[in-house]
Design a protein around this nucleic acid. Sequence first.
DNA 1: CGGATCGAC
DNA 2: CTATGTCGATCCG
Length: 863
Amino acid sequence: MDNMKEVDNSSCSDGVLLRMGLNDNKAGMQGLDKEKINKIIMKATKGSRFYENELKKDQQVNQRIEKMMRLKEKITAQQLLKAQLQVDNLVTELEQRRNLSNTIVHIDMDAFYAAVEMRDNPELKEKPIAVGSMSMLSTSNYHARRFGVRAAMPGFIAKKLCPHITIVPLNFEKYSKVSKEVREILTEYDPNFMPMGLDEAYLNISEHLEERVNWPEDKRRFFFNTESTTEKDKDDVNMSAKLNGGGFSSSPVLFEDNTPLMDDHYEQRDGKQSVENSVVFGTSAEEVVKEIRFRIEQKTQLTASAGIAPNTMLAKMCSDCNKPNGQCRIVPERQAVLDFLKDLPIRKVPGIGKVTEKMLKALGIVTCSELYQQRALLSLLFSEASWRNFLEISLGLGSTHLEKDGERKSMSTERTFSEINTAEDQYRLCQELCRDLAEELQKEGLKGKTVTLKLKNVNFEVKTRASTMLSSVSTKEEIFAVAKELLATEIDSSAPHPLRIRLMGVRVSGFLSEDEKKYQQKSIMSFLKSEKEIGHPGKSKQEFFTKNTEASSRGSFFDKKRAARQQNSESLAPNQTVGKQLFHDRKSANLVEETEKVAALQSSAVCKTFTCPVCFEDQSSNNLEEFNRHIDECLNRASVNNTMEISENEYSRENKPNITLQFKNENIDECQKAKPDQLPGTEQSASTSNNSTSSSTEKFTQIISDEPHRERHPSKLSDIAGNMYLKQCLFPKGISQGNENRFEKTEHTEEATSFHLFEAKEDGVLVCPVCNSEQKSTSLLSFNRHVDICLNKGIIQELTEKKDFPTKTYNLENSSRVGGLSRGQQCTNPSQGTKRSGLTTSQSVSKKAKSSNSKHTIEMFFK
DNA sequence: CGGATCGAC
DNA sequence: CTATGTCGATCCG
């Protein structure tokens, strides 16, 4: 890669510049030659963050290549021989299936956006232009290309290559309109044609050809457009069309030096009548495509190139041969196909990009025939899918029919901007993206289960973070609830440094099948219904959300919770002290009691071995005191931080790197009360716990089958009461759980565990404690997210106020979620677990002193 | 499933 | 100053 840092041309040619697509400048009279172009690009590029990242990526590719080469070294002649036989069997099979009976056409508008702009603004016609912005160009006209100005090049570099270039901003509406006009023509030849973006399309004209044979001439006659063009244009079109033997002009729009491509690619129309201002096309595939191109040009004043071949791959490559404004055909014969491929560089093959090209080049493969020759080797070095693809390419095989693209699989939106490094702005942006995305999703009536956040930092490094929910999401609130968490995780994990990003994106995928949609609809209805029953005059759901994300409203909600907690802390028996309004029946209160016992038990000695909740090491002792000592030791390693309050504003994360667990004053007492030496475990409860791990464990394990890190820390479950289960959950580093369900911040690098209560139905269905709907759960994490989302709707607050909510609140701890944090959420910041939910609870870190361990209470909701 | 990468337009 | 936006596929852990 050292060579890349030189401006030396010879060394440039093989590296980054090559990948920028600037190495094959067809030097024109007024253009620049390849070396000058590279030199200018290099100067503009070298030292930039972008460039550094390009180098890094390049290194990664080189490492892949090295790895591949090492693999290659180990291949024996025997293996190769065997592979050869196997591959050749496949070749025979593929040959037998070769289908040359279809006529596929690939239509490709020439320099589409640029051509449209030139058409609409005659002043641009003679100039080098590009369409896009100073940051990025979408395309350039052929004049600009002579200066090395290409699509996917930033405008400011184009300016350096070609100071006189005109950069026209994108105008998609216009291109769409033109594209639609073109499609109207195409659909006549193949109603099932497949558009690929605005400027390309595949057609299968096999049927059209069959019918066309019997068509009378009049049906194949088309007239020159004499209307919607300017006087000058009209003359140009007519004149050049006539001069080209009935064809149509090379577009004066595109080329100042009109190369007489038409003569090469259009046969003379011998024997064809040419009435004035009209032309008749024949019945061959070539004639059909000329007709299509003619009609496109007449209608739009734009030219297209085309390829005709027995399959899409060949048609596409073919359309490239004679562009611009030309066409090419591979006749449906095996030999013609192989001849076409023989010296064709693999890079021309659709699907083979710069990386694959470089990897294959390392193996001495540049052309398609070489790709075929090395088929045995490739089958040993690449994945099945890859080498089979290579083989089909080298045989000239491809899709012979145009399948309608199936249902969309994802929808996303992303934005690039100048550096954003404050959490507040980042969350705002995220919210914005979610809003836009939700809008688009709504248009198509889609709901997806997976939300992915994409970030690109100022060094151009890209990261994606995804999370899959149990129920699908579609509203901006729902999406943001998830995206926000993902973002929070990233912000926290980069602490104490701020995230410095230049791009953010949000994607939703995992759309529901039709069946799932119906099921989902039901649960939505029930959700809406429950909302309606409560009745919120004058309040929209949106208002709920907005309100709820504001500190003030959270306050009112949590004030209640705090009050309840305080009440609770005065007596150690929760079922007696918890406010009546929080419990609807005695049973759940008992359940809570049971839960606490077991939870406490799990933290303490269970039989002869137990697991320390702090360091997660198995301790083999049945002596409670010994265990306590161990825990004390572990806890003593925990660092204690100064008390500190974080802003109630959920967007504000400025207080990092400090721990953002926040203590309300009233909690400090509780915290200090509960010291590690006050382990509540008793022999009595130990006995209950002993026979607790039962057959139900299996069932539950299944439910949470993809809970992260089950290998390292197998879930420990206890059947507490009926269908309630206590699960020992992994806790991220930086936090551990002390006794009595207190969580503690620790410097300990190991992850620890915590205990959480779940309800499962017979067939492994978890019931969302908020919306009360059954969630087919495969992932605990997903279930938690669902709960978070429900909570975010703000419904909890309203419902609890109305005392009408079907869930019971249990003041075990103060997390709004069921279950713990998983490592996937990578938080080094203890506040995050609750903060992310949008309903931040009050937490605190006591003063620097002593065993001040933070207390962490979770409010659990369950049916 | 989640994350990174590739490739196309 | 200033290097896109969207989507599908694939591979790997």
